[in-house]
């Protein structure tokens, strides 16, 4: 399994490179890179969580940004009520996204294929409009947070480098969990259900419950990413969960390589660095991104990971 060994090597090298971002940006005296890469790490978590359900579970959710939004609003609302404990804020975010993901999953997992895509999209739009119409929490303009969550004097999140490693720790934790999860019995069941749900049901597995479980785990991971986004930006607005954001997270997964664990993280780095460079050059960055995206798909959708280890990822669901 040379490909597998290469894959693991890339994962370790990649994480090591990401760990070196703060000292390198200090050496270059470019503190902006720490902020940019904190954001990139947060979106890496979101992309990683989406990868779990679209690549391993075969559930094409087109509303994943809603969990970013719910997680972020949970932190924002807790902050508005004067709750400044960071741990509590993260727990609220996780609980809120678990509840929303369970509701969305219960309804949308009753369907599959195109129905599933459209329904997840519609539900994310529902929460988006809800956030716009509730004026108490900023409505369309969004809300500004008073301060970052407090984790005691050991972890002062107001320090940009501390915040970076705080987010990095979450990414590393989730990557570790996911790499074990997809090889576990649970992971094998949802992978089996992607290929042939009927056969898995015939083998005696309650497929719906397993899929719902994966859907909720993925939602909670993304919700934590949303909470971290709120802590970083100190600002929450409905724009976090615009429908195009769901598409962007999906693009990150595809750019990096589906079902490759580290691929989505590479994809998030590539996408957001590309966005950062292109928005500096042109105000029409969506135009170029659109063309690049259509070209990637028409040329057969192979992520960055496949370039590195030369293993062709084949689509086996639809």
């Amino acid at each position: 399994m040379a490909a597998n060994r290469n894959r693991r090597l890339i994962m370790w090298l990649g994480m090591a490179a990401l760990a070196l971002v703060p000292p390198v940006s200090l050496a270059l005296s470019q503190p902006y890179y720490v902020d940019l890469f904190t954001r990139i790490l947060i979106f890496s978590i979101a992309a990683l969580s989406l990868d779990l359900i679209i690549s391993y579970g075969g559930m094409l959710s087109f509303g994943h940004a809603v969990y970013l939004g719910v997680g972020a609003y949970a932190v924002g609302i807790a902050d508005a009520y004067g709750i400044d404990s960071g741990l509590f804020q993260l727990l609220v975010a996780a609980a809120a996204t678990a509840a929303i993901a369970t509701f969305i999953g219960l309804v949308s997992l009753r369907t599959s294929g195109v129905h599933f895509i459209m329904i997840t999209l519609a539900f994310s739009q529902m929460i988006y409009f809800l956030s716009i119409s509730v004026n108490k929490f900023g409505g369309e303009d969004g809300m500004t947070l008073n301060q970052r969550g407090q984790f005691g004097s050991l972890i002062p999140l107001d320090n940009a480098n501390v915040l970076y490693y705080f987010v990095f720790a979450f990414l590393a934790l989730f990557l570790w969990i996911q790499s074990h999860l997809v090889r576990s019995r649970f992971g094998m069941v949802i992978r089996g259900a992607r290929t042939n749900p009927r056969r898995m049901a015939a083998l005696g597995f309650p497929v719906f419950r397993y899929q719902l479980g994966a859907f909720v785990i993925s939602g909670v991971m993304c919700g934590v990413a949303g909470a971290l986004l709120a802590e970083q930006a100190l600002f929450v607005s409905p724009a976090i969960m615009q429908w195009s954001r769901s598409g962007e997270i999906m693009v990150m997964v595809i750019m990096g390589g589906m079902g490759t664990l580290f691929g989505p993280i590479l994809g998030a780095v590539a996408y957001l660095v590309l966005e950062d460079v292109l928005t500096g050059l042109t105000q029409y960055w969506g135009f170029f991104l659109g063309i690049i995206l259509v070209a990637i798909i028409l040329m057969g959708r192979q992520g960055i990971m496949s370039l590195v280890y030369g293993l062709r990822w084949k689509s086996s669901h639809g």
Binding site: L60, V114, V251, Y284, F287, G290, V294, I297, R301, G318
Partner: peptide, 21 residues
């Protein structure tokens, strides 16, 4: 002849392109 994921992504790309066009 592609799967739904390819269709979603390519048409999403078209939407981004037209919105800026």
């Amino acid at each position: 002849t592609r799967d739904h994921l390819d269709q979603v992504l390519a048409t999403f790309g078209l939407t981004l392109m037209f919105n800026d066009l």
